[in-house]
Nucleic acid binder design. Structure first.
Lengths: 257, 257
DNA sequence: GAACTTATGTTCGCTATACGAACACACGGG
DNA sequence: CCCGTGTGTTCGTATAGCGAACATAAGTTC
């Protein structure tokens, strides 16, 4: 029937099964077999097979046999990724130091497609209206960590990315003009840090630095987010930046793999 | 060949594919096809098919075609679970309040098998030697949240659990005698909170309260972990406990589903 | 550095496996 | 009560995934 991905080395069943997990989400804790089938574009028969399988594996629960819901076991999958990052624990430790020193939240993120994905976080008082947590995604172009990560990408890749992406303004301050953005990124790479001032959310200003591996490749970014009323732009560069830089180099130094 | 789980409504391929993700972990960021096959008990051919599939889906990367590693996209799976929890965001907010008020880390966890699994966390200064994060697991019997969750489980289930589990001491204070443990749990349920004093790690004392849904069923627990030198046992009940209780009832009140 | 051994990755014909059309069953509205 | 609509389940069939067998690379030994 569908010959889209049929290479003989593609396991359709696995791909379909994973969409079942993704069928759950906000406002969709409890789903019937048919709900899942609809949301994952599967026949009811298929959805049933997958749900029953996931249930046996402990990823899914169903008390009454009608409504299915995800179980904490699915976190093990994400944890497999997190724990596979060689510098993850180390970063966490030094981020705690940063957070304690500046009394603000500190996060780490990597790039995935055009988004940043949070992989570690030490939270203090909330500054953003949105809830950020591990696994959360934000558009790279409007975040301090995103800019840092983009700036350190291969030039060819970056060209292509800027070319084909449509940058939408998020606040009134968001820079979306491609030439302007490109210039900002060059500057970010030159100076080795990035400040984003209320481009993602009004009242929020954050600063990020890159995280290099032993080979000098930028693998992630760490940042500190502040409220404009609490921390001046000046203080960001004089106090927070040095703390981030110290942490960044310490993490690089402690890199195991 | 193997007729172990062959009910006709069990999709072997999905189960196998998921083990591929779990093959990665600490000290196993980059794995060859053969490594994966070994660690997941698959033939090399199967491991190859799965890895190539996961690669196409963006869950796995392979620069050279030899070494494979997990990508941030796998966090989306865990995120599907977290975001499906109706009170997750709300809890996060009130936990931030608790953490700010008492200036200590606050976590939320649910029960899975005999473990607690962390599902939300507001971290301040580190008190444990281990790194805790979302998805982390700890033995339920030796943690404050674990005791709370166990105490509110169905009596029949609890009997069975205590019966068939072998409780190993973690520190010199860990209570492992089954009658003593059972007595503690009864007390926990009666008083509506649980203090665990250095039973999980020396120098660490924590207090937990249950989190009820609208129907009065205990769905999770939230706790505050402290260092014995910084917070007295007295202060735990006089200051921290009220904060936790307030948060708990506010979360229940704001429960949407 | 040839000759052998071991381990890794890939191919390909076969059959077990996952597939979905068809069926049965529950619900609800007229 | 009947009919329409939606949900879950069965079962024969085709095909998707399987692994034995092959090729190719990486070590070992003399």
């Amino acid at each position: 029937m569908s010959m889209t991905k049929d290479d003989g080395e593609y396991v359709q069943t696995l791909a379909r099964g994973l969409t079942v997990i993704r069928a759950f989400g906000p406002q969709h804790q409890k789903l019937t077999l048919s709900d899942v089938a609809r949301r994952a574009n599967l026949t009811r028969a298929a959805a049933r097979r997958f749900l029953l399988t996931l249930k046996r594996l402990g990823y899914v629960k169903s008390d009454d046999g009608k409504y299915f819901s995800l179980q904490p076991a699915v976190l093990d999958l994400g944890y497999a990724y997190l724990s596979s990052i060689p510098w993850w624990e180390i970063a966490q430790r030094y981020m705690e130091e940063v957070s304690a020193a500046v009394e603000e939240s500190c996060s780490a993120a990597v790039l995935a497609d055009g988004d940043i994905v949070y992989i570690a976080r030490v939270a203090t008082q909330r500054i953003m209206s949105m809830t950020i947590n591990i696994g959360s995604r934000m558009p790279a172009y409007a975040t301090s960590m995103g800019r840092v990560l983009l700036a350190h990408q291969e030039p060819a890749w970056l060209d292509d990315f800027i070319e084909k992406t449509n940058f939408a303004p998020i606040t009134e301050h968001t820079v979306v003009q491609k030439p302007a953005l490109r210039k900002l990124l060059t500057e970010v790479k030159r100076q080795g840090f990035c400040i984003v001032d209320q481009e993602l959310e009004a009242g929020v200003r954050s600063i990020a630095v890159p995280l290099f591996d032993r080979q000098g490749k930028c693998q992630a970014a760490i940042n500190v987010g502040t409220h404009i009323a609490r921390v001046s732009k000046m203080k960001l560069t004089t106090t927070v930046l040095p703390a981030l830089r110290t942490a960044s180099s310490k993490i690089t130094a402690a890199w195991t793999a």
